[in-house]
Design a protein around this nucleic acid. Structure first.
Lengths: 244, 244
DNA sequence: CGCGAACTTGATATTTGTCAACTAAGGTGG
DNA sequence: CCACCTTAGTTGACAAATATCAAGTTCGCG
């Protein structure tokens, strides 16, 4: 059941057979969370580390004036709160976009794994580093690109990440976000998202209707957005495995 | 000589005497880098991990159109490129603001430490997590706050971080940044930085002349910026140690 | 003293935000 | 199956924030 976890961590370090065995024996409770609800809230000190098995979620923070800022999206295989195992309490919330299935791994298990299985700790550290690289790219994206490129960049990132976990088609994927979600991600207003989206449509770069995003020519979108997937550290550069 | 490293890592994990001994024996070459030059460049695969002993540096990236984005500042005790030990090549550059003294720790040493000293690896992981939390806060700052609050927030962060490493005064510190640096950090134009700075001055929140920043009333600046230093995970919440 | 970099200022253009109304879509109960 | 109702998406007019350009001015330094 945790193939997805092993697959993810294998990217980050050379796991031994023992490491893998240990990970396979991990039987966290699995938990179902409905769409548009919180998995963990700002200030919580969760006793378990949550891993997404299925669904689509985000990290977000509500500011004192009520505005929301979305700082990351989480797809299957991503950890929600690995950092609390080390850092203490949550300084933001995790909310679902779609219904999600999560595994809850007791914090003590993480502690034990990291004490006794250096390669597993290393792989988790690696996962943290990839998240950090992603955040740096988001910062560049929001800080120095105009709204239309920002949006295009986000859509490219989704395309690559969703393909990597096998939940996207050849030139389209399900994007369970409202325009308000996108606005809170890119730091622009909802109305502006709407207009920018129309501009991208007019340029023939994307189509988005009833949560289905289509990219007629991915290369063109990538060029427009100045997107380079290297920072995601997914090894399949294209989208599907090579099958002879 | 590496007191500063031990001090930093001690925040992140319970180091054993053996761990500390191992860290004390670390004699990396020390390297001097002049102001306004690159320590490591985008695309490099450094053989050493660099740690700042003294001085002030930043992570930045140049975009295809020549614009620059500054994604982080580094002060004494910070790692420049811990991630390349795990991740591969640099996806951004490190540049100095002032002259800096760095230690170069061979990548192999880091590998060995992380294989044999779980607490040290854990502490380095912790350092990564703090950097990540900082990036999330920067993202919120840039994405959802107006320019004057953004700048105030940045100045608060410097105040707390510089105090924690003992290079700031009671209500002032040296800020070796030009207005252009600040612009590239906050994602606004240089001219706008100038105007916003004047507004902060007019409100009596800060003074900045010839690289010296003064904060007459830190509490007021903090409130204005909606700044909460918790994400930095430095234990001294105020600024100087309690001396009876 | 002079030179270059950093800072400052004003005028103007562009991007983005806000407000308010309206339309379309999806879900629910009758 | 339809009427209704709520939420998401769309539009226009206007306001505010920020960018750009161009011309000074000041500052630090050789």
């Amino acid at each position: 059941m945790h193939n997805i976890l092993i697959r993810k961590l294998s990217h980050g370090a050379e796991l031994t057979g023992d490491d893998r065995g240990r990970l396979e024996d991990l039987v966290g409770r699995s938990r179902r969370v409905e769409a548009r609800s919180d998995v963990i809230s700002d200030g919580d000190i969760p006793g378990d580390v949550h891993l997404i098995l299925e669904g689509f979620a985000c990290r977000y923070k509500i500011m004192p004036d009520g505005r929301r800022s979305i700082m990351a999206y989480l797809v299957p295989g991503d950890f929600c709160d690995l950092h609390v195992a080390i850092l203490g309490s949550m300084d933001h919330s995790i909310g679902t976009m779609t219904a999600c299935t999560l595994v809850e791994i007791p914090r003590a298990t993480i502690e034990e794994l990291s004490a006794k299985h250096p390669q597993i700790m290393r792989a988790m550290w690696w996962a943290t580093l990839v998240d950090e690289a992603t955040l740096r790219h988001w910062l560049v994206n929001i800080g120095r690109r105009p709204a239309d490129q920002r949006l295009a960049h986000l859509l490219c990132e989704f395309y690559v990440r969703l393909n990597a976990v096998g939940v996207a088609g050849d030139r389209s994927y399900q994007l369970p976000l409202t325009q308000e979600d996108i606005a809170d991600t890119l730091g622009i207003s909802t109305v502006h998202v709407n207009r920018v989206l129309q501009r991208l449509r007019a340029k023939g770069l994307v189509t988005l209707q009833s949560r289905a995003l289509t990219i007629p020519d991915y290369g063109r979108l990538e060029a427009f957005a100045d997107f380079d997937p290297a920072y995601l550290h997914l090894d399949r550069p294209g989208r599907r495995e090579h099958r002879p």
